[in-house]
Simulated scan of single mutants.
Amino acid sequence: MKRATKISAAAVGLAVLAVTGTAAADVHHSSNDWPYAQHSAKSYTLAAVGDIACEPDDDDNAANPAALKCGGPTLGGMGAEFATAKQATDMHPDAVALLGDEQYQVGKLTDFEQSFEQAWGGLKMLERPAPGNHEYYPYAKKGDNEAGQNGVGYFGYFNGHDQAGTPNAQGQAGDDTAGNQGWYSYDLGNWHIVSLNAECDSDAFGHDCSTTDGGLLSQETQWLAQDLAENKRPCTIAYWHQPTFSATTASTATVAASAPGAGGIEGAAADAWWTLLYKHRATLVLNGHEHAYARLRPMNPAGQYDRAHGIPEFIIGSGGEALDTLAGTEGAYANPNVVTAQASAFGVMDLTLKSNGYSWNYKPVQPGPGFDATALQYSDSGSGSCK
């Protein structure tokens, strides 16, 4: 398996990592102010969120419905994505885990440049993204009809591109090749962190969501098995877009929220990843896709509560674009493994990664459309240990 090389960016004093497989992403700092100030080698801050940037109302989107663009009445809009970007910046993170759907509706490069970049561009060198369905799939809902980008805008933005707009084959979003669509891993201290691409129902994956038939998703799953087997660090986080287990009504129309694959065909395919992560005693799984925040109890691959060996799941799809509806209410969620959840405000999760444990703190920063400041009274925090 190829290993990434670590490229020093002397202009800013930050080690920037190109990834072609497993990348060693130890971050080094100078004596300047954040983000290059000295941090304790025993503790790292990881900001985590997905589902962020509204579609810009520009000439490239002139034919698209106004309700789907920044300023649409049901969207968070530019104000929300700026609010969450400031929240993440104020955390002074060592890295930013982006959980997919960074840019709506189909993640064209111009969309990234005119929306996501405006709010989140200041954190770009720290961002460690995973793609979502809006970066790969076509969008033909609510009067819209846009072709899928198959990651072209996503890779073009995060990896850079040539003068013609063709994405670089390697960069901080992983490889952009026929044989690797942006899965990679990196390390922060005692933590091994894996970013995966679940967008298997796309042209890039041959619309093949099998994890065992030799197709691209199967190759990604084999890579994950090897990556986890080779990892020597005691703590592991994996993140991808569609959750295996659900908390909202958007993902539970046909499958029970507590069943593997409630998030759709991608979530069902990711059940194989959960099995591998469970086998290797992974510490946490982070997902987006559902426009809400939810914390789920430690679960085995069948979605059963497993206090001793299960993996807690955090859904953090509250980056700013829009909000969904929770399945059930507090104390009576459709998925009994949901401990706490909110879908009335936008916010980013602050994860502190310690030598053999972690703590989390989630507090939203901006109410969603139709909600008032009382939505900001929600908070969720706690701590856990590595297995």
Score class of each variant (00 low, 15 high):
366 Q>M: 15
200 C>Y: 01
207 H>C: 05
286 L>Y: 07
20 T>G: 13
217 L>D: 15
99 L>G: 06
238 A>I: 04
387 K>V: 09
256 A>W: 08
232 K>F: 09
5 T>G: 11
259 A>E: 12
16 V>L: 13
269 A>Q: 07
385 S>W: 03
363 K>R: 15
194 V>P: 01
41 A>R: 14
283 T>P: 01
328 G>A: 05
181 Q>W: 15
97 A>Q: 01
55 E>L: 15
364 P>Y: 08
90 D>F: 08
368 G>I: 07
241 H>A: 06
130 A>W: 04
217 L>Y: 00
223 W>C: 01
204 A>V: 07
319 G>Y: 08
383 S>K: 14
86 K>T: 15
178 A>P: 00
381 S>W: 04
201 D>S: 05
261 G>K: 07
7 I>N: 09
235 C>R: 01
343 A>W: 13
214 G>D: 10
231 N>A: 02
4 A>G: 15
133 N>K: 04
379 S>E: 13
188 L>A: 05
378 Y>T: 08
357 G>D: 00
370 G>Q: 09
51 D>M: 07
143 G>D: 15
247 A>H: 02
142 K>P: 12
366 Q>C: 08
141 K>R: 10
377 Q>M: 06
30 S>P: 01
178 A>W: 03
364 P>T: 03
26 D>N: 09
257 A>H: 05
30 S>A: 11
216 L>C: 06
299 M>Q: 12
6 K>Y: 10
155 F>I: 10
281 R>T: 08
308 A>D: 12
143 G>Y: 13
210 S>E: 04
131 P>Y: 04
301 P>W: 06
262 A>K: 11
